[in-house]
Amino acid sequence: MAEFEPKIIAFCCNWCTYAAADIAGTSRIHYPANVRIVRVMCSGMVDPIYILKAFEMGADGVLIAGCHEADCHYLNGPLKCDAMFEKIKRVVNILGLEGERLRREMIAAAEAPVFAELIEEMVKQLKKLGPSPLREGVKV
C-alpha cells in the first residue's frame, strides 16, 4: 500500500505568509506537495467555519498563518486570529481531533525557509498521526 499522504489546508494571509509561500517557490525551496493554500486577506478574517469545513472535507491538518503582530497590514489582525484560535482549538478537541492537527503560526513575507520547514514538519507529524478520524464522511 502506498504511504499515507496527509492533506493540509493552509489559510495564509495575503500580505505575509502567502507572500512567503510565493517566495519559497521563486527561490525553489522544495517542500512536500501536501499543502494547499487558501488565500485570505488577514489571519484575523479566518472564520471558524472554514476550519471545521476543512476537517469535514477530509483535511488531515489545518494551518492558519499570517503576519507577526508588528507587521500586520491591518494593524492588529493577528490578535483577533489568536482569540479565535483559542476557542476553535477547544471545539476541535471536542470533535475528537488531536491538537497537533490544527496549527497557528506567524510567518513574515521574508521567512520563506521558515514556511517550507513548517510544512515539512507538519507533514512528518501528520504521517505519524495517520489519517484524520473525520476523513471518512462526517455527518453534521
Binding site: 487558501v38 485570505v40 486577506m41 488577514c42 484575523g44 478574517m45 479566518v46 472564520d47 471558524p48 467555519i49 472554514y50 469545513k53 497590514h73 491591518y74 489582525g77 483577533k80 479565535m84
Partner: peptide, 26 residues
C-alpha cells in the same frame, strides 16, 4: 480596508466580506 475581521466575528452572520464570502471560501 477589507481585512474581513468583522465578517468572521459577526455572531449573526450579517456581514459579507466581498470577494472573500463564506460561500466563496467554502
Amino acid at each position: 480596508q477589507g481585512c474581513g475581521v468583522c465578517a468572521a466575528a459577526c455572531p449573526s452572520g450579517a456581514i459579507t466580506h466581498n470577494y472573500f464570502t463564506v460561500e466563496e471560501i467554502t
